[in-house]
Computed example of a mutant assay.
Amino acid sequence: MEVKLGLGLDGISFGISQDSLKDMIGEPDKIDVDHDELPLLQYNSLMCTFWMDKSDRLHWIQSANPLLTLQNTKVIGMEVLDIVAKLALVLGYSHEFEDYGATESYSFSEHELEIQSEYGIVTDVCFGHYWKDDEPLYTNA
């Protein structure tokens, strides 16, 4: 499972509809909602949650899948500081950091990318589509 920054995950592209997502990977195990009452489609076997926007288009993915790769590197279960240092080098800029105690967040906002960790180990990778002039860029939808 390869994260394609700004584009999606493997063959799943940002901007596709909820129905198209379901056609591709089946019915979700659970449908929740975010703070804006927008759907979050959870797929247990993929260890992924797909976030839909107000236009019912995929705009954010959260994954804890141990097979997930980013920049051709396995990330889940790895030392977070190693992963963040590599990303800073590859992406060309430093991250923003938030500390929640045992849980930490490292964000690369220009690439709509967030690395979450607990006790120094990567637990989740969250990523979304890019933006231009405050409008979403859905390049492959």
Rank of each mutant, 00 (worst) to 15 (best):
H35A: 14
L58C: 11
L68A: 01
S105Q: 12
V33E: 09
V33R: 11
I61H: 01
S94Q: 12
Q71C: 08
G77R: 08
L46F: 12
I115Q: 11
M24R: 12
F50R: 04
K132I: 13
P39Y: 07
C48T: 09
C126S: 06
S107K: 03
L46I: 13
D19R: 08
D36K: 07
H35N: 13
T49R: 09
G6N: 09
K132A: 10
Y93S: 00
F14Y: 07
P39C: 02
G15T: 15
K74L: 04
S107Y: 02
N65A: 05
V80S: 05
D32C: 03
G26F: 06
Q18G: 08
L58T: 13
L41G: 04
P66M: 11
M52K: 07
L5N: 11
I115S: 09
Y106P: 02
G15L: 12
D34P: 03
P28N: 12
E2F: 04
Q71S: 07
T49S: 04
S94K: 14
N65T: 10
S20N: 12
E37C: 00
E27W: 06
L89P: 02
S20W: 10
P39M: 05
D23S: 10
L9K: 11
L5S: 07
L81D: 14
L87D: 13
A102S: 14
D23L: 06
Y119I: 10
K132W: 05
I76T: 01
T69K: 14
L81C: 03
H129K: 13
V125E: 00
I121G: 01
S105F: 05
E96M: 03
D32S: 06
L21P: 09
C48R: 02
S17D: 09
E118D: 07
D10A: 14
D133E: 13
Q42M: 02
E114F: 04
L137F: 14
S109C: 03
T103D: 07
G15H: 11
L7K: 14
A64G: 10
Y93K: 00
K30Q: 04
D56Q: 10
L5W: 02
V125D: 00
V90Y: 04
L5F: 03
E37L: 05
E104W: 01
I31Q: 08
T123Q: 07
I31M: 09
K22E: 08
D99K: 10
A85W: 03
D34W: 02
L21V: 12
V80L: 00
A141H: 15
L67Y: 11
I12D: 08
H35S: 15
V80P: 00
I25V: 05
D19N: 12
K4N: 09
N65L: 04
H111Y: 12
H111S: 15
Y43M: 10
F127C: 04
V80G: 00
S13Q: 13
W51H: 15
I12T: 11
V122Q: 01
T69R: 13
V80Q: 04
E37R: 06
F14Q: 03
S20H: 14
K54C: 06
E110Q: 14
Y100H: 13
L81G: 02
D133C: 03
E96F: 01
I61K: 01
Q18N: 02
